[in-house]
Amino acid sequence: DLSALRVEEVQNVINAMQKILECPICLELIKEPVSTKCDHIFCKFCMLKLLNQKKGPSQCPLCKNDITKRSLQESTRFSQLVEELLKIICAFQLDTGLEYANSYNFAKKENNSPEHLKDEVSIIQSMGYRNRAKRLLQSEPENPSLQETSLSVQLSNLGTVRTLRTKQRIQPQRTSVYIELGSDSSEDTVNKATYCSVGDQELLQITPQGTRDEISLDSAKKAACEFSETDVTNTEHHQPSNNDLNTTEKRAAERHPEKYQGSSVSNLHVEPCGTNTHASSLQHENSSLLLTKDRMNVEKAEF
């Protein structure tokens, strides 16, 4: 173990290094160091905050020279020094078990990766560091076993998940096959086929009936047209017969005018059967003409 005197000496050296690497504005270890034209180094955030307070150039807090945003430059070497100082402080805390008085939040800088452990060898070769390295080497064999167990647990979990997924996939297939086998029997399929065939026959029977009705309507229309044509021909046949009657009536009127007047009046009210309204109107006109002729003949006879 380190003596108290040596611990104090190391602590004083760390404090001196820390004062050199402090920012003059925030009085902390410089984060993202930036250098000016006057070779003074500050935190990048502190300098941008200072420049944004005034429009135009501002003055350096140490030498009062003008500073602009374009004049600022990043210093990589200074950032490396800060990183190495942080590593020294971490090693000091691990070796002594004491917390550094002016320690900052170094938890963000710590890294437990194997590459980081290899890099620590180049920091300080001390008894405390050696003991700590031995402890780490002793704890390393235990870690692979834990990793193997965790991997086995994960693989077993994956296997159970896969088996569950396969079961879920197989179950719908089985149910679907069961439904297909038990849903419709052979008799049901035959009945469905016969039902479809009967429906098709009914459709075939319905369509000819409609065509037959249309044919019957067409035949009825044709018969009505033929009947009207026969009526017209009958009226045409009746007209010459009426003319013959008129000639006979004229002759009778010349011989017996008194008797014919009474008979002509009675004939006005008689309509021949089986004739249309057109034929009756023609008869009325003929009878009126005959009456006028008879009157003329009677007057001539009187004179």
Rank of each mutant, 00 (worst) to 15 (best):
E99Y: 15
L155H: 13
I41N: 03
S122Y: 07
L48E: 15
C38Y: 15
N267T: 03
S103D: 07
F78H: 10
N52D: 09
C23V: 15
S263W: 00
D95T: 15
L268N: 08
G159K: 13
V82N: 05
E302K: 07
C26Y: 15
N246G: 13
E140F: 05
T166E: 09
G210V: 05
D39I: 09
G199V: 05
F227K: 13
N131F: 12
P33D: 13
E187V: 09
R6W: 14
L94P: 15
Q154H: 03
L94F: 08
D200L: 00
E148F: 10
F45V: 07
C26P: 15
G199A: 03
K19T: 02
P24Y: 01
C225T: 06
P141H: 06
Q168P: 07
P24A: 02
G182R: 11
Q125E: 03
C63L: 14
L29W: 01
Q18I: 11
P33M: 12
G210Y: 00
S264D: 15
E22Q: 03
I14V: 08
Q138H: 06
Q171R: 14
L158I: 07
L217T: 13
L268I: 01
K49G: 02
S186N: 01
S58D: 04
Q283L: 14
L136D: 02
K31A: 11
R130N: 02
E120K: 10
R162T: 10
Q239K: 05
E142Y: 05
P114S: 02
P144D: 02
Y129W: 05
E229P: 01
H256N: 05
K108S: 00
E9N: 14
A224P: 01
M127F: 00
H269N: 13
A4K: 15
K134S: 07
K87V: 01
L50R: 04
E8R: 06
L2Q: 10
S122A: 15
S186A: 02
K192S: 01
I30H: 09
R6I: 06
D231E: 03
T275A: 01
V153T: 12
C63R: 15
N131E: 03
E83N: 04
S241I: 03
S241N: 02
V177F: 15
C23S: 15
R6D: 05
E99N: 12
S216I: 06
C60L: 15
S228C: 03
I67V: 05
L146A: 12
E229R: 11
Q205C: 00
S288V: 14
N243V: 08
Q80M: 04
L146G: 11
I67R: 10
C196L: 01
Q80C: 09
R251S: 12
D294L: 00
A16R: 07
H238N: 11
L268G: 09
S139R: 08
E84C: 10
R251V: 08
Y260N: 09
L164Y: 08
G210F: 14
S139Q: 07
L203T: 13
S35H: 12
K118D: 09
E120L: 15
I67A: 04
F92L: 12
E110S: 10
E22S: 04
H284C: 04
A91K: 14
E83A: 08
N15C: 09
R130L: 08
A223D: 07
L62H: 05
H40P: 15
S266N: 05
K250V: 13
R295P: 05
K222P: 07
N234H: 12
A133E: 06
A252K: 07
R251L: 10
L155K: 12
Q147D: 03
V153G: 13
A16T: 08
T189C: 01
C90E: 04
S113V: 11
L146M: 07
Q125F: 10
E140W: 14
I88T: 13
Q138Y: 05
V232H: 06
C273L: 02
T211S: 14
S266A: 06
T189S: 05
A220T: 09
M47Y: 11
E180H: 05
S219G: 11
A223T: 11
E83L: 13
T68V: 02
N12E: 05
S156L: 08
S219F: 00
Q11K: 10
I41E: 01
P208R: 04
P33W: 13
T163K: 11
G262W: 00
A4I: 10
E258T: 08
Q59C: 14
S71F: 13
H40C: 10
L81A: 14
R135P: 09
E214W: 00
K109E: 06
N157E: 07
V298M: 15
A279Y: 13
L98I: 04
H278P: 10
N143H: 02
M296D: 09
Q205V: 03
M127L: 07
S79Y: 09
L151Q: 13
K221H: 11
A16K: 04
Q73C: 04
A252T: 04
S79P: 12
Y104F: 10
I67H: 06
E120V: 14
L21D: 15
Q73N: 07
H256M: 01
E32Y: 09
L48W: 03
F106C: 07
Q209D: 13
E258D: 11
I124Y: 03
C63F: 14
E32W: 07
R251C: 08
S71N: 01
V161N: 11
A133K: 07
P144A: 06
F45L: 06
D188H: 01
E229L: 01
P141Y: 04
N191S: 10
A253D: 08
V10C: 11
S145C: 02
Q261W: 00
C60A: 14
N234E: 01
L137D: 07
Q53P: 09
K222M: 07
T277N: 08
H116Y: 01
L27R: 07
K37G: 06
V7W: 09
V10L: 09
Q53K: 04
P257K: 02
L136C: 03
S113M: 01
S58Y: 11
E22V: 03
N276L: 13
D119E: 11
I89Q: 11
Q11Y: 09
K250R: 02
S266W: 00
K44C: 08
S186H: 03
K19L: 03
F42H: 13
F45Y: 06
K54E: 07
Q168G: 06
S145F: 01
V10F: 10
E285L: 07
V7Y: 05
G262T: 05
K44Q: 02
N15T: 13
L158T: 09
I124N: 03
L29C: 11
V161F: 03
S216P: 13
T230S: 10
M17L: 09
V153I: 01
T68M: 09
K49M: 00
N157D: 09
S216H: 05
S126R: 08
Y129P: 14
R6Q: 12
E84F: 14
E285Q: 14
L203S: 09
T277I: 02
S152W: 12
L51G: 07
E254V: 10
Y104R: 10
N267F: 11
N157M: 00
M127C: 12
D218T: 06
A133T: 04
S126I: 11
H284G: 14
L203N: 14
A133F: 13
L62A: 04
Q53T: 07
L81T: 13
C273W: 00
K300C: 12
Q261V: 05
P141M: 14
F92H: 09
S264T: 02
S216A: 12
L51A: 06
L268R: 03
Q125C: 15
V10S: 11
L51F: 06
F106G: 07
N246L: 03
K259E: 11
R295A: 08
L151R: 13
N234S: 05
Y129F: 08
E74N: 03
L86P: 03
C26D: 13
D200K: 11
V232D: 11
Q73V: 06
T189Y: 00
S264Y: 02
L282C: 07
F45K: 06
L289H: 13
S280I: 04
G56M: 12
E187R: 03
I206M: 12
S35K: 02
R132W: 00
